[in-house]
Design a protein around this nucleic acid. Structure first.
Lengths: 126, 126
DNA sequence: GAGATCAAGTCTATGTTCTAGACCTTGTCT
DNA sequence: AGACAAGGTCTAGAACATAGACTTGATCTC
């Protein structure tokens, strides 16, 4: 798309953009959920798996890897058989919980409003 | 997976869970980005498209539809030719910006730390 | 000593979702 | 007559996610 000034754009993301970089990572299906689960303390792979309930092992593994890479969580492997692996939040991860909790609180408060908006929309669509 | 109490799980999401319901919607690739763009005022489809830069029209259309359904944004169609469509935040959408800004501020502050974590991880992987 | 079992993954086949880009509409401008 | 405009939709192919089988090796059961 070539340059075109007919429609003024009040805002464009700088690219590469630090905000997008972060949002793209944690803004996926599972990261926020995992971080929230880990708030409650150190947990093993299968425990996280069951806490979330409907995540596939592959996605859990992949997402945990990314969170570890980005410094949100720590992974400890105990060389036993069968293997034991524990995940816990780092300081960075814990500090992230603060704004995340704001988001969760908002979700909790406004969930009803969202459901009503959906219902109204569905009714209008008939 | 059948019931199994060997590993205690400190936390399980109730299902269905209002928090998950909300997070699943806005926790996708594009919703947060679109809401942030719309913070700066009413915008037309193509303006949003260009502000974000690398979203496909189909995804933009789909995501806008979902945000409208959920009551985050308003869509106004002016029956002109060629058509003009404007999108703007609702009160609900604007109220969501508050916790979202917390998240963005966090991202801005900690972006460097995340990059360092990534670099450290990459170095260790060699 | 053959086989079952454990946790934490990986591998594979299948299904879902996303992307890029062509196409559609229908009044105005050339 | 033909080109162009904006806001989409449609389609084919690529990327990604899922479910479920498989792996590993020490221990426990038969």
């Amino acid at each position: 798309m070539e340059q075109d000034n007919l429609i003024p754009i009040p805002f464009v993301f700088e690219q590469p953009c630090p905000i997008r970089d972060v949002l793209d990572r944690i803004g996926d299906q599972w990261s926020l959920l995992i971080l929230q689960v880990l708030e409650h303390g150190t947990m093993r792979f299968s425990a996280i798996n069951r806490a979330i309930g409907d995540i596939s092992k592959q996605m859990l593994s992949k997402t945990l890897k990314r969170l570890e890479e980005d410094g949100f969580i720590w992974r400890t492997l105990y060389p036993e058989v069968p293997p034991r692996v524990e995940y816990e939040l780092t300081d960075l991860g814990r500090s992230f919980l603060v704004p995340m909790k704001g988001l969760i609180a908002w979700a909790d408060v406004h969930h009803r409003a969202i459901c009503e908006a959906r219902a109204k929309h569905a009714a209008r669509a008939e």
